[in-house]
Nucleic acid binder design. Structure first.
Length: 313
DNA sequence: CAGGTC
DNA sequence: GCTGG
């Protein structure tokens, strides 16, 4: 290519390995809106039909149009495996459903929220996010995370026409912060937990990168060694960040649903519910959890709203 | 009182 | 118990 030539012309037929900034997939059983909005990831913004966010450290714009999914990134990439993995485009949905028991509740929830998928997020981002999630609404979690990213993340190359997005701050950056600074970002009583987790990961005391190669119980236990990480947060990280699809996070919503439907409203511990969920729904219990969770949430607050919704008792 | 944890 | 709806 002659030097000094303006980049006004492109190769007529890009070879398979030619780095590109755009990609289109044909996908089935996938609903981007549900998947990015359901509270498993906290950094996606919707603007009309477009979604902006950071996947695996890279800024991305996504648009879904029926069975077409389109992605755009600021700098050409040689392949798109990172995004396919993050979005779990190749998750074998029919095979997953085939493992589910014949359960009327699950069947209905699955039909209603068809297209809701589990993402595969970076483990540290996932751990930090869910450490910040307790007793917070999704919007608040998003806010805190956004502040953390702007303060300790790096500005990323911007997509044309879009504002600059920031990387999720690596453990070392958070580890170097003070508890007061984290509180100032809105972390509240979770600040010391986040700080301790960042230090543990940064110093190799919690080897997040190795956990996917261990068994689910081992990974879960390793996470629960961290202060502030109990069964619920550990399971969220196992499910959304480590790829243990048998994990069955039990939060208050799921606990309510399970006690009502499977235990006649009896008082059962959350660990019992988690075990029950895993054994009833099997190797992909996490998918079942997500359908049941989303179903319950949307039933209780139909417009994902700021409606008060006082208890009916 | 909120998608927990110690 | 942080903090906000």
């Amino acid at each position: 290519m002659p030097a000094g030539t303006c980049a006004e012309s492109r190769p007529p037929l890009p070879l398979p390995d030619t780095p590109t900034t755009r990609k289109v997939w044909r996908i089935h059983d996938y609903r981007l809106d549900l998947t990015l909005q359901c509270g498993q990831a906290f950094r996606w913004q919707r603007h009309g039909p477009r979604w902006w966010g950071v996947a695996d450290g890279k800024p991305v714009e996504l648009v879904q149009n029926g069975t077409l999914l389109q992605a755009r990134v600021p700098e050409p990439v040689p392949d798109w495996a990172w995004l396919e993995n993050y979005l779990q485009l190749h998750a074998p949905l029919p095979a997953i459903w085939a493992t589910f028991p014949d359960d009327p509740h699950l069947h209905r929830a699955r039909a209603q929220w068809h297209g809701l998928r589990l993402l595969r997020q970076p483990a540290w981002e996932c751990l930090a996010s869910f450490l910040l999630s307790s007793c917070k609404r999704i919007e608040q979690i998003q806010q805190v995370i956004e502040r953390l990213c702007r303060r300790w993340g790096d500005p990323l190359p911007a997509l044309e026409g879009l504002p600059t997005l920031y990387s999720f701050p690596p453990p070392g950056r958070i580890a170097a912060a003070t508890e007061a600074e984290l509180r100032a970002c809105g972390a509240g009583f979770r600040a010391p937990y986040l700080l301790a987790a960042a230090r543990a990961v940064d110093q190799g005391r919690c080897p997040l990168d190795e956990l996917p190669r261990r068994t689910y119980p081992e990974a879960r236990a390793a996470l629960m060694n961290l202060p502030g990480v109990g069964p619920k947060i550990a399971d969220c990280v196992c499910l959304f960040g480590l790829g243990f699809l048998e994990a069955f996070p039990v939060d208050t919503w799921i606990a309510r649903v399970m006690r009502e439907r499977y235990f006649r409203g009896r008082r059962v511990s959350e660990e019992t519910l988690a075990e029950f969920g895993r054994s009833r729904f099997g190797p992909y219990a996490g998918y079942a959890q997500q359908y049941l969770f989303h179903d319950r949430r949307m039933t209780d607050r139909p417009r994902e709203a700021h409606l008060h919704n006082p208890p009916s008792g």
